[in-house]
Design a protein around this nucleic acid. Structure first.
Lengths: 225, 225
DNA sequence: GTCGCGACTTGAACTTTGTGCAAGTCCTCC
DNA sequence: GGAGGACTTGCACAAAGTTCAAGTCGCGAC
């Protein structure tokens, strides 16, 4: 029986927990070590450095996404399901998309996902590089859509940490946003319908709308109508 | 004649320069101070803290985007131009999109851009919340599309800073990526066409493809055909 | 069994960086 | 010319990433 030792796997899983709870800038090696019941620096034997750890974590989470079979449901249903799977995963791990802008993510997890995505669009009738482009179109849209959510999560976390006045500061931020918006006619027109959770409530509907519009557009590209 | 004093404006412009040159994690208050010819902490009189500075910078850059007039060119041309403007701006400032995932960006610059975007889609025939959704669809796609570029820039900068072996490490990274890809049938099939600058060359074409597909999809939503 | 070696862990220490603070300097207005 | 506010500075501290030399543990060879 080997000594109760750290493994890269356990480190990555714990890092993901910490990232989910504390965000990208909340993750630090000391608390990671504490959570693992080890010295902070013990991690460095298993993982090159923090950037590397984030990359490992940022690949691992792609494994959470279920891969629907396009044979049984049709490609469009499968594509929708996969887009939703990605969206929900990215919202569950709000550090992922920002991290993808700083570290090139690649690895078995993302590759598994990409490969299946290609399968779906090839099944739809896209050939060669067109399948890549179709996949990328949906993909980039989904990732972009989660940016706002990530920022909101990060903001509320920061406010909560700053002190008890999270509510007040959030209201303050919203007020300033609104005030600026008033200077622009179309934004002002919307301001009258605005509620403070505009950033929190709208995205879901907007995401679904955009996704279906994009799939419409892709469908129109297919040769067989 | 007032003393040659710092202004928020000059601070923000210098911060943008530094962000462009060194990236999000390369920006630090000491070198910013040095560049400004002032003590690092002098900045704190004008700006609350670093996060705040990044938010100011992250709003300012939106002013670089030209706003095409949909009356003279037609909405679709205008929408395409605006999407390109945003894409190029985001590539010029590769720290922007990652930062948008961590800080809620808002301010006069982004508002100006958003307002004009709404004008274009309203001109196209989208009414009320549909204009917001149409704009958001294109928008999120563009932002998502720049993520990969941002990451590549950040990676090469990190490699260059680590030492002279940037080339070697980049090749190493690519090799590992390829090796993993080999385990998945569709990725492997592509691997044979792969060149090392796959990440650098493909995006442009892919972006244009996706953008036009999305505009097709949006056009199909319009009542008057 | 014990010796040795490689796998793994630890604690101390160094460095970088964000930021608060008290003291300073400069300008303007009375 | 003095008072007060606008702005700047240097010092100092704390948080966090990382290195390193010195451990400790367990297994296989003799």
């Amino acid at each position: 029986m080997p000594r109760d030792t750290l493994t890269t796997d356990r480190i990555v899983r714990t890092a993901i927990e910490l990232l989910d709870a504390e965000g990208l800038e909340g993750l630090n090696m000391r608390s990671l070590g504490e959570r693992l019941g080890a010295a902070a620096t013990a991690v460095y034997w298993h993982v090159k450095n923090k950037d590397n750890l984030v990359m490992l974590a940022g690949d691992e989470v792609w494994n959470e996404i279920e891969l629907p079979d396009p044979e049984t449901t049709g490609w469009r249903t499968a594509a929708t399901a996969m887009a939703h799977g990605l969206y929900e995963m990215a919202v569950r791990h709000p550090w992922l998309v920002p991290a993808m802008g700083v570290h090139l993510m690649y690895g078995p997890g993302k590759s598994r996902h990409d490969d299946h995505g290609l399968a779906i669009y090839e099944k739809a009738g896209f050939v060669g590089a067109d399948a890549d482009r179709a996949l990328a179109t949906v993909f980039m849209f989904v990732l972009g859509s989660t940016l706002g959510e990530s920022a909101t999560v990060a903001l509320t976390r920061r406010l909560r940490k700053d002190g008890g006045d999270a509510e007040e500061q959030l209201r303050d931020t919203m007020a300033k946003t609104g005030e600026i918006a008033m200077r622009f006619p179309r934004l002002r027109a919307r301001g009258e319908t605005f509620t403070e959770n505009d950033y929190g409530a709208a995205p879901d509907k907007s995401f679904e709308y955009g996704l279906q519009v994009i799939l419409d557009g892709l469908e129109a590209q297919l040769p067989g109508r």
